[in-house]
Nucleic acid binder design. Structure first.
Length: 792
RNA sequence: GCUGAGGUGGCGGAAUGGUAUACGCGCAAGUCUCAAAAACUUGUGGAGAUAAUACUCCGUGAGGGUUCGAGUCCCUCUCUCAGCACCA
């Protein structure tokens, strides 16, 4: 490829097939694998993607949700997400920002453990294998990750600080123990949080485990909880300040679920209602004694007792029902058939009175004044169950001392006997054990290991017992973004996050991830950040200023699933077509926010396009740098303008379409690209196709086969500027409409675009238009530079 | 049921209220070749009509409306996808 000649006609292949085949071991005129290996090694060795974490002047923290290794490797959906995030980071870097784009693995927790159990490996062994494979894959897509600062949640130097977070929560009264009816998955043999229980099947509520799909039962167990409900109001009130999509914000609002209402006493029973204004139409009270989850039919029985309506002294029958949810409000409601469909359905079925009276808004005030009830704010949000009766997680760093419990002493007065593990003793290391499989007796595997749980009380020195449950994975991932900037720093061993670096880099400027985490990870992270802020440990309340939810990749119109056998393994495509082609194709499928449909034929098309880019630029390298083609140059300006506009909005698909239009025009031109145009174009595609862009950049800037000392990567170039004046052609296609219908376009000089007289004259005399203007126009609409519309 | 996003060629998808279907895939014909593949070139919404790539009409889920002009704005309906659901 070193002795390039000027092709007499660029539109025909510039390299003959024979020459091509003799030199290149692939059907493409370059070998993508060689390029990828070459540049990935170069970038790593020359720290091209490592940011100066201390000295950066324009920090930009670009983060993609880290993956959890719950399978053999990453699937194409992960690649999609990482590529979309990476293009944004690269674009911001080319805008002059110091972009920090870290990566890690959320390898602790049920997801990974279940997979390890399934394939019959010890979770720890599986973690080592998956770490290697996942990181290889993450390298292979050529993202600009800073590989000097990774986080793996299962390494003691990370989970030490996860435990530290737990300790802070306890010290500030936000962690407590409670016996509660919790969600229990009998297949995973553990407790699940409300957020990890899915409601499945059309219309029929059916509680199933998020991970294994097994039916979830209610079980009474003593658990550790985080008091996230203490932050319900703040979590809700901050939502309008977030630059997140309405969809995700709406999901959180709904999940927190604030309702303003009143509790009203009917004798010794108390109800909760959001409609105290309908107190005048109450005809029965309904309790939750017969509650059945998932029942579609309303059932109940009369208790034989009555209550008195404080408003009018009427006797109100009390019914036991199956449709009132316990655990929300007071578990008792006032039945108002006239104003509530469900109450109406129930009242009709059991022939209960129906009083039709208009709601009376003054009742809010009256009820409070008379002392019948009081205003309350309720939230749907429940406290976060942290305990997991499993092996593969961070041990909860708590110690229970029987001696102290008896004497009533404890770190928190409300919880005698309980003490946090002293910070100097962290981490509580997860021991290597063989009987790591989950048990069905409500305790975790660690509860069978004396050598683990036997310890001494930090308070009185007596023999004490460690907590043997481990933390929910979502605790691991609720603070990881705080850790990245500090990894490998001088304070990494002393603090979870360096205050100076935290101030410099956080909150995260751009967070990208799946919308499925709307109420899970994103809510927990906000809560933990808020709590740490209130403990005086963070200068901000919200962890992610901007969150962008990417779409889902489907395959040939159907959701990818193992049972259908249509899961796309990205490795095969990277091997066959190259990382650049895969990146470009994934981004071309549709808007990044919407996801796309993966098709092999589309992949082929992108592979061809990469080849066209190569031919175009290589045939132009270092020849006639002054030579250019007006039309091509103009098309390039349009492509730059479009991409500059599309990238911040993540409309990568249309940006790529612009590149294609440019290449199409450039390849039909008789002249090669000028060197400066070629450089602009290569810079433009660099965020999308980093390897080939770098290779082409060396050809354009050094001309040689070796990379010279002091070489500046294409990825450190500034995003190209464009000439606005060239976006408009010297002539414009002016549209002539009759009654709003397009009848003709005429080409006129740009300068005449706003001259109505000239255009009207041309239009009236146009043969095609004339015949529609037999009756003179009643009205003429003229839009300068665009169109003229005759209304007849 | 509630909330949110949608419905555009054979397919994925483009269109600040102003030329609907950019770009890509697929398909067809052609160039090259002994041949094939690859690559390249041209064509490609539907119906009608024609010697003609002249021309006419219809077309963005359905029906109304606003407007000189609607895929885009408003109303009614319908279907799809995602999330949430006896939360009183």
């Amino acid at each position: 490829m070193s002795d390039q000649r000027v092709p007499s006609d660029v539109s025909s292949p510039s390299i003959s097939a024979d020459e091509n085949e003799a030199k290149i071991p692939s059907k493409q005129s370059f070998f993508h694998k060689d390029l990828e290996v070459k540049w990935q090694v170069y970038w790593k060795e020359h720290n091209v993607n490592t940011v100066d974490i201390q000295g950066a002047t324009k920090p930009f923290y670009n983060l993609m949700m880290f993956p959890y290794p719950s399978a053999e490797g990453l699937h194409v959906g992960n690649m999609y997400a990482f590529t979309g995030s990476d293009i944004y980071g690269r674009f911001m870097r080319m805008q002059g920002y110091d972009v920090f784009e870290p990566i890690g693995l959320d390898g602790f927790g049920i997801h990974s453990e279940n997979y390890a159990l399934k394939v019959g490996r010890h979770p720890k062994e599986h973690a080592a294998i998956s770490e290697k494979h996942f990181y290889e894959q993450l390298h292979s897509i050529g993202a600009c990750f800073d590989w000097t600062r990774t986080v793996e949640t299962y390494h003691p130097d990370y989970y030490r600080w996860t435990q530290w977070v737990f300790v802070q929560m306890f010290k500030h009264g936000l962690a407590y123990r409670s016996t509660a009816a919790v969600n229990w998955c009998n297949s995973c043999k553990t407790v699940l949080s409300d957020e990890q229980v899915l409601q499945e099947e059309h219309g029929i509520p059916h509680a199933v485990c998020e991970r294994c799909g097994n039916k979830v039962e209610k079980k009474s167990l003593e658990q550790w909880f985080f008091k996230i409900t203490a932050y319900a109001g703040k979590l809700l009130d901050n939502i309008p300040k977030l630059q997140w999509s309405e969809k995700v914000k709406g999901a959180q609002e709904k999940w927190i679920g604030r309702s303003e209402g009143m509790t009203i006493r009917f004798g010794n029973l108390e109800v909760f209602t959001t409609r105290p204004d309908t107190l005048n139409a109450v005809t029965f009270l309904a309790t939750s004694e017969l509650y059945e989850e998932g029942s579609t039919e309303k059932k109940g029985e009369f208790s034989g007792e009555y209550a008195i309506n404080p408003l009018d002294g009427r006797k109100i029958p009390i019914w036991k029902t199956n449709y009132v949810a316990p655990g929300y409000g007071t578990g008792i409601i006032m039945g108002v058939p006239a104003h509530d469909e469900r109450d109406m359905e129930f009242a009709t079925k059991y022939h209960i009175d129906i009083i039709k009276k208009d709601p009376d808004p003054t009742l809010w005030e009256k009820i409070a004044r008379e002392g019948w009830g009081k205003r309350v704010t309720k939230y749907h949000l429940r406290d976060w169950t942290i305990s997991r009766q499993r092996y593969w997680g961070a041990p909860i760093p708590m110690i229970y001392c029987e001696t102290c419990a008896k004497s009533g002493s404890g770190e928190q007065s409300s919880m005698p006997g309980w003490f946090t593990v002293p910070e100097k003793d962290l981490p509580v290391v997860l021991p290597d054990i063989d009987d790591y499989k989950p048990r069905d007796d409500g305790v975790g595997p660690l509860a069978k290991h004396k050598e683990f749980y036997e310890t001494v009380c930090p308070h009185c020195g007596a023999l004490a017992k460690r907590e043997t449950d481990v933390c929910d994975t979502f605790l691991d991932s609720s603070w990881y973004y705080l850790r990245y900037p500090s990894v490998g720093g001088s304070m990494a061993d002393q603090l979870p996050f360096d205050p100076e670096l935290t101030k410099k880099w956080l909150p995260v400027a751009m967070y990208t991830g799946g919308a499925e985490h709307s109420v899970l990870h994103l809510m927990y992270s906000r809560f933990v950040t808020m709590a740490l802020h209130d403990f005086g440990l963070l200068p901000f309340e919200e962890p992610f200023l901007t969150f962008f939810a990417h779409g889902l990749v489907i395959k040939d119109g159907a959701k990818m699933s193992k049972s259908k056998g249509n899961v796309v393994n990205p490795d095969i495509y990277i091997d066959k077509y190259g990382a650049d082609a895969l990146r470009m194709y994934l981004m071309f499928m549709g808007p990044f926010a919407d996801g796309g449909d993966f098709r092999d034929t589309g992949m082929e098309g992108m592979y061809r396009f990469i080849g066209r880019i190569w031919r175009l630029v290589v045939s132009s390298a270092n020849i006639y740098p002054e030579d250019t083609d007006e039309k091509t140059h103009r098309q390039l300006q349009m492509a730059i303008a479009r991409a500059t506009d599309d990238l911040p909005k993540r409309r990568y698909n249309t940006a790529i379409a612009g590149f294609m239009e440019f290449v199409n025009v450039a390849l039909t031109s008789k002249k090669p690209l000028s060197t400066s145009d070629a450089k602009d174009f290569v810079t433009l595609i660099a965020p999308f196709a980093p390897h080939i862009a770098e290779e082409l950049w060396t050809k354009l800037t050094t001309g040689g086969e070796t990379i010279p000392e002091g070489y500046v990567s294409v990825h450190h170039q500034h995003w190209p500027m464009y000439d606005k004046s060239l976006l408009i052609d010297s002539s414009i296609q002016f549209v002539i409409q009759v009654n709003g219908k397009m009848r003709e376009t005429i080409s006129i000089p740009k300068n005449d675009g706003d001259n109505q007289q000239v255009i009207e004259e041309l239009a009236r005399n146009n043969e095609k238009v004339k015949k529609f203007l037999i009756t003179g126009p009643k009205k003429i609409i003229f839009i300068a530079g665009k169109l003229i519309n005759f209304v007849v």
